[in-house]
C-alpha cells in the first residue's frame, strides 16, 4: 500500500471520524517495500495541493524515514527551473520531486498494522492490502 494512500484513510468506526486523533492512522510493526514506478511529474504537481502535509510528515517520522521539512514543497520546487515549460511533458523533475515520488508512490507498507489514535483499533496490512472490515460488535 502506497504511503500516499494514508492521506485518504482513517478509522472505519463512525464515532472516530469526528476526532482529529483518528487521522492519520499510525503504521505499526511495518515491513516496507519499494515498488518502483515511473515518475509522473504532472501528476505529482497536481496532487501536491491535495496533500495533508502534516500527515505525510507524521507517517514518515513514525516509519523512521528521513525527516521532512515543516512545510510542503511548492509546485515550483518540483520542476528544474531551466526546464519550466508550457508543456508538462518537457519538464524535468528536481531531486525534491524524485524524493516525493519515492516517498508517496514507491514506498509501500507490505505487512503490518494501521492503528487508530482515537480508539486504538488495529487494522492488519497483509501482502500490501489493508483490511478495514470490522468485527460484528464494532459495526
Amino acid at each position: 500500500m502506497k504511503l500516499l494512500t494514508l492521506n485518504f484513510l482513517t478509522c472505519a468506526i463512525k464515532t472516530c471520524k469526528g476526532s482529529p486523533a483518528s487521522f492519520p492512522l499510525h503504521p505499526r510493526d511495518s515491513e516496507l517495500e519499494i515498488i518502483e514506478t515511473d515518475i509522473n511529474l504532472p501528476f505529482l504537481k497536481n496532487i501536491l495541493p491535495r496533500l495533508t502535509w502534516d500527515a505525510v510528515r507524521t507517517i514518515s517520522t513514525e516509519l523512521g524515514l528521513p525527516e521532512l521539512p515543516a512545510t510542503a514543497p511548492t509546485r515550483e520546487d518540483l520542476v528544474e527551473p531551466s526546464s519550466t515549460s508550457e508543456d508538462d511533458a518537457e519538464e524535468v523533475p528536481t531531486q525534491v520531486a524524485k524524493d516525493l515520488h519515492r516517498l508517496l508512490l514507491e514506498t509501500c507498507v507490505k505487512e503490518g498494522k494501521l492503528v487508530c489514535g482515537c480508539c486504538e483499533h488495529e487494522y492488519q496490512v497483509k501482502e500490501g492490502v489493508a483490511n478495514f472490515l470490522l468485527p460484528g460488535h464494532l459495526v
Binding site: 482513517t10 472505519a12 515498488i35 489493508a130 478495514f132 472490515l133 459495526v139
Partner: peptide, 19 residues
Amino acid sequence: QHLNTSSLVVADNLSLPHP
C-alpha cells in the same frame, strides 16, 4: 500493482475507512 495512480483496501461500504 505497478499503477501509480491507484491504491486498494478491503472495506465495507457502510463502514468506509475514509476521512
